[in-house]
Nucleic acid binder design. Structure first.
Length: 627
DNA sequence: CGTCTTTGACCTGCGC
DNA sequence: GCGCAGGTCAAAGACG
């Protein structure tokens, strides 16, 4: 997370003023909206000055603002621009776009008019300078926040290194202390003791657990040891050797939260690091500081071949229900399990998302008389993306389409948005939202969810078998706006609006948002053409392509674009993970938000806001939340 | 004939 | 250990 990247993002995300530098036709993106008059002025100057070397100098400085944009003094640049302008011939300086274009041979302007125009130009440039100064302030604030984030990262990294060192010491101690017979003891004994740290070195972490076999779930043992004889995809997962890294963090309420980072997929060395929050089962709760220490130091060094792989036995020792733990790692290694669900009101059998699908199954799900259809992407063989299509039981005009997985092929035009949605959502959800249903109860009393929409169903659901983000566009399908506020949501306390400058989405940050936060937003273009950083409509996502005459088509486009915008933002993804980690860390110290009763939702919002992230929260007035 | 859909069987996970 | 539910497979049929 480099500063350059962040600041560049903030500038580019502005989507606002694009200042055409005089004379050389260069275009520099500015993170604010240039007033129409000024833009026209500069444009007109640009069109006529062919040898304005002085202005070119200024232009290059503007470019350096965009590229280096760190130490450059914007006020000084503006002043120089003014000075350069003063040195230009008067017939080149005093032309603005709101006046008839004066070309060569035109009569010279009168001194009075010239003075007035020069004054106007100076005023406009002063406004520009003011805005630039404000930008500088925002950049400074962003820098400060980045410093904080970096410090947090360093602290976490230091914690990791410490844990690794402790683990190595513990491993060495175990080698010298544990008798040979104890090492060969049955797993049941190990589990009962609950102290032995070592796992069977011969057993891959993703192999079927002995516990699973004992419980009769391995009905078809296979030579591959995966327990999935019919699915190549699953066999592939089983072939991967994973070395998890678990950091235990204490929960304030009644359980523990384990933030687990699966350090490395040792098969392909791909960075599959994921954060996972997990609440220990009560019977596995720590009873002693020593046990806590064992948890905290349970770290596997992915790079060391002397370290045994963590097997299911160790999962139990660590308080993870073995099956669940294995499952969690499988989820980590397969983004298929993160889902993006879209609710639309349509009569069509499926949602046209631009991809080709082949139906491979249909099932009657319990509680819904409408069958659920299973589709597989057929754009390319072996593409893991699947989708489920089912009509809502309560309202059969609502079509629920759930996407899962990442496309492994170039996408047809028109399918890019949805594909990026599922892909990014998978990463986002794997990073940030998976936690125990108990733990995230503060995020939404009954549904254990974040809210992103107006429908009282979970929008990021942790109670579902898989983390799922849901976009609900059924409340007003003909509207040209998709609201992310939840003014009518009674059960869900929070709403997030996220940066969505890409994909044609404008986000209107709430007026309460600070300038740094708003800097992440796409700056809505105000009708006046003047600078406006804080549009009045809070928490509203508006698409550029709104067309009331094509509500259904637009509906789909909006869903696709908005979902993609929300989930594709790497800032949000990383920030969410950081925020959750920060929250959990804070809760470890019992100092989160100054209260143990603070909800995770509140804490999350606080942490996100503290990081200046493009997320805002609107707490519903008077709503009672079971945090 | 190739592709797609249908549908019953099978597998796995989970709760009791 | 058993039963249920969700998900997947693959043979059979439909369709162009």
């Amino acid at each position: 997370m480099g500063l350059n990247t962040e600041e560049s993002r903030s500038i580019e995300a502005g989507n606002g003023g694009r200042l055409r530098s005089p004379g050389i036709g260069l275009s520099v993106a500015l993170p604010f909206e240039i007033s129409g008059d000024m833009a026209n002025t500069l444009d007109s100057e640009s069109s006529r000055q062919t040898h304005a070397s002085d202005s070119a100098t200024v232009a290059s400085e503007f470019i350096s603002l965009s590229t280096n944009h760190r130490e450059t003094s914007i006020p000084r640049m503006t002043q120089q621009f003014l000075e350069n302008e003063n040195r230009l011939p008067i017939n080149l300086r005093n032309k603005t776009n709101d006046r008839p274009t004066v070309v060569d041979g035109s009569p010279p302007l009168t001194p009075k008019r010239s003075s007035q125009m020069e004054s106007d130009l100076h005023n406009q440039l002063k406004r520009t300078r003011n805005e630039m100064e404000r930008m500088m302030d925002e950049n400074q604030q962003m820098r400060k926040m980045l410093t904080l984030m970096t410090a947090e990262y360093n602290a976490l990294h230091q914690h990791l290194l410490t844990a690794v060192a402790q683990q190595q010491q513990q491993q060495e101690a175990m080698k010298s202390m544990v008798p040979q017979s104890a090492a060969a003891a049955p797993n049941e004994e190990v589990i009962k003791n609950g102290h032995t740290q070592r796992a069977s070195p011969e057993r891959s972490f993703t192999e079927p657990s002995s516990n699973s076999a004992a419980s009769g779930r391995s009905r078809s043992p296979t030579p591959t040891g995966t327990g999935h004889s019919r699915s190549p995809r699953r066999a592939h997962h089983g072939a991967k050797e994973l070395r998890p890294l678990s950091l235990k963090l204490e929960d304030n309420s009644n359980g523990k939260i384990i933030v687990q980072a699966v350090s490395m997929d040792t098969t392909d060395r791909s960075p599959v690091s994921r954060f996972r929050a997990y609440k220990e089962e009560p019977q596995f709760q720590s009873t002693s500081p020593e046990r806590d220490h064992e948890f905290a130091t349970e770290v596997q060094d992915s790079g060391s071949h002397e370290e045994p792989s963590v097997g299911p036995e160790q999962s139990e020792q660590n308080g993870w229900p073995p099956n669940k733990r294995v499952k969690s790692v499988l989820q980590d290694t397969s983004v298929r399990n993160a889902r993006v669900s879209v609710r639309t009101r349509t009569d069509a059998p499926t949602m046209n998302d631009g991809c080709q699908w082949r139906k491979y199954g249909q099932k009657l799900a319990k509680g819904n008389p409408c069958p659920r259809a299973y589709y597989r992407c057929t754009v390319a063989p072996g593409c893991p993306v699947r989708k489920q299509v089912q009509r809502c039981a309560e309202d059969r005009s609502i079509l629920i389409t759930t996407y899962e997985g990442n496309h492994s092929h170039p996408l047809p035009q028109g399918a890019v948005s949805m594909a990026s949605t599922t892909s990014a959502a998978a990463g986002m959800l794997m990073l940030g939202s998976t936690s125990s249903s108990d733990r995230v109860e503060g995020l939404g009393s009954a549904e254990n969810s974040f809210s992103l929409g107006t429908h009282p169903m979970p929008m990021i659901s942790a109670s579902a078998p898989f983390p799922t983000i849901t976009l609900d566009l059924t409340t007003n399908p003909a509207a040209s706006q998709m609201h992310l506020d939840a003014a009518n949501v009674s059960r869900l306390p929070y709403n997030f609006s996220m940066a969505a400058a890409a994909n044609g989405i404008q986000l209107h940050p709430p007026s309460i948002m600070n300038p740094v936060q708003s800097a992440y937003y796409g700056v809505a273009k105000p009708p006046t053409g003047a600078f406006q950083m804080y549009p009045p409509n809070p928490l509203t996502v508006q698409s550029h392509v709104g067309n009331a005459a094509r509500p259904q088509q637009y509906l789909h486009e909006s869903v696709t674009a908005a979902t993609a915008a929300i989930t594709a933002d790497p800032n949000f993804t990383a920030a969410l993970a950081t925020a959750i980690t920060s929250i959990l860390s804070s809760q470890t110290n019992g100092s989160l938000m100054g209260s143990n009763n603070t909800s995770l939702g509140e804490a999350l919002m606080g942490a996100l806001a503290g990081h200046g992230l493009p997320i805002t929260a609107a707490k519903k007035d008077g709503a009672s939340h079971s945090m």
